[in-house]
Amino acid sequence: MSILTQLFLSFIKVGLFSVGGGYAAIPLIQNQIVDVHGLMTLSEFTDLITIAEMTPGPISINSATFVGTTLGGIGGAILCTLGCIIPSFIICLTLAHFYYKYRNFSGVQTVLSALRPAVVALIGSAGLSILLLGIFGSETAISLSSIRPIETILFVGCLYMLRKYKISAIKIIFGSGIVGTIAYFTMNLLIV
């Protein structure tokens, strides 16, 4: 079996068995790429995860593209990403079909209504993790002395602008990156 076929099948497995988002996929990708097929060393794989976390987009798509490009050029990247997407596509299309067929039944509505508060809570907890990571630099080591002033001001400022002026999310995220980076570098200049 050629390397590309192997990769394609590996990423179909990753797509099929990673339930619950990006971080659930990392051990699966590691298993397929490092342990089973030996296509990458563990340190190359660690680099890959660092890059996947630093760049936008789902971690499994990022890893698929990275592994694919390194081992088989652009064709490899497309093939690995396809492998990763195909299971999602088939399963979600089926679920979407049934959801839209039955969602207006009052019984289905009653059941779904109990699900929605949980989804709100899950989104809220994801927001809290990112906030703690931003303000304290860690989700677990929380103390007054580790508060980062620039991130804290940015968060409050961004939230105020979103609530008051309804600015688009992308402008806020991009803007916070620019303003925060400038703030960090000016602070470094002033201290040195």
């Binding site: 927001g127 961004c158 995220i173």
Partner: peptide, 19 residues
């Protein structure tokens, strides 16, 4: 590295707004 680090504050603000 710095831009990616500070962007988290903006991302958190967007999620909080939605939540």
């Amino acid at each position: 590295a710095t831009a990616l680090m500070v962007m988290r504050a903006g991302v958190a603000a967007v999620i909080f707004d939605v939540v």
